[in-house]
Design a binder for these strands. Sequence first.
DNA 1: ATCGTCGTGTCCGTTGAATGGACACCGGCG
DNA 2: CGCCGGTGTCCATTCAACGGACACGACGAT
Lengths: 259, 259
Amino acid sequence: MPRTNEPGRSVSSRLLQVLFSFGPDQSALSLTDLERRTGLPHATVRRLAMELTDVGALSRNHDGRFTIGLRLWQLGTLAPLTESLRTSAQPFMEDLYTALRQHVQLAVREGAEAVIIERLSAPRAPGLVSQVGGRLPLHCSGVGKVLLAHGGGDLIDGVLSGKLRRYTPRTVVDPTALRGELAECRRTGTASVRGELTTGADSVATRIVDGDGMVVAALSVVVRTGSVKHQAALPSLIASGLGISRVLGWRPGIRIRDV
Amino acid sequence: MPRTNEPGRSVSSRLLQVLFSFGPDQSALSLTDLERRTGLPHATVRRLAMELTDVGALSRNHDGRFTIGLRLWQLGTLAPLTESLRTSAQPFMEDLYTALRQHVQLAVREGAEAVIIERLSAPRAPGLVSQVGGRLPLHCSGVGKVLLAHGGGDLIDGVLSGKLRRYTPRTVVDPTALRGELAECRRTGTASVRGELTTGADSVATRIVDGDGMVVAALSVVVRTGSVKHQAALPSLIASGLGISRVLGWRPGIRIRDV
DNA sequence: ATCGTCGTGTCCGTTGAATGGACACCGGCG
DNA sequence: CGCCGGTGTCCATTCAACGGACACGACGAT
């Protein structure tokens, strides 16, 4: 640790600043892009970027811009919950998709956000911007509500006491109302949102449970508002969720636990 | 850059040593595991690991061991050639898989190895150890031969002049023989191996070409030795490869180029 | 109960590696 | 031609990383 504990003053932090400058919107950055995004002097950025490139963490395009390297991608594949969950869930997600022909998403929670780790969607996608690796808010997405409901009291208190962003006029931002929904979700194992995150998009979600009864992920189907599918999707969604949970070792009777 | 250019003496290199200690075999490492793998003093390793954990690059298990964090996984999803190729190829791979019921692999080249970026396999898999994020040698795997054949003269010279590891008695390690195979592969666009990497496993592979005619990936089917499928798989494999190439913008008539 | 071992966590004086301001090069443009 | 934005290089300064030393708790054997 650096002598002082002020954040952002260690090499590591600077190195990671460079790495985390990359995002879904900007997956190829030039040296000056990095300079601007990190706020670090260009000599420093250059040195760090070159070192990262040397070991394959970044790779440099022929036009001089940097992208995430394969080595880093490989490291990512080693993340737990990710690869095993994806492979377990994939067949179920495909079946669900062929049955419904609607967006299907699998997400886990990281901190106070939901991260999409797998996704299947119709080629002719109605304006839905989610993407593998992308993040969704906990309080107004289907998967988010499921993950929040089972994230433990501390998490719920933390999220509800913070500012709840209103994405659309229909976003529920009243803590008391939300607590009710979350309790209901814990009872039924499912949650639904109607146009709370994106106008025109409804979503139903269910929990995924592992062999210890832990809620490790959430599975959801997203449909266009007004489509009757919203309710029709529920039974098949629940069945798929239970199927995935079974693959993970869960059996009826295993008590479902939060966090 | 550090004043001197000796490798392994910069913070960045140490930080990356820690990260790259993780591998498919060891995806959860304790502090002392990291200490041993990196050869760094434990105080140093600890400091680095904690910093990485703070920003979510690593995450710490309840038992104290470290794993790759979700933030790092998210970064990985931004790697080019990876996400776009995967999504383009996925439907074709699935069709191929349902048609053949055999292992299907998609790989790209990184340096002198092939990296598997997507894989579909039968649940009852005959001893095949490949895995997403895993690596295969260029000179004796199906995808490897395709990628090597189109990797440019320098790469071929480099690989053939080096030591060619003999994985099985059938592994071809004679440079002249290999050159012949590679030339043939460039002509036909396909390569096949019979038990050269793993005894009992045959493989046929074909190239994937993008809109510029660049060979960006290789697609292969792996079957058990002796099964007639080996040849029967070829037509559908070629068709799938062409299909993926078309999605990437390739059209008949676009000249196929190496590297 | 006692000792040894192993994994983990913490401290702090030393020092050498990261830093970043300054300078230089290059191509495009008005 | 002069200006500008992006890139690449240099090197004296200094401050953050370093790692040896110490400490704690858990476990197992004696």
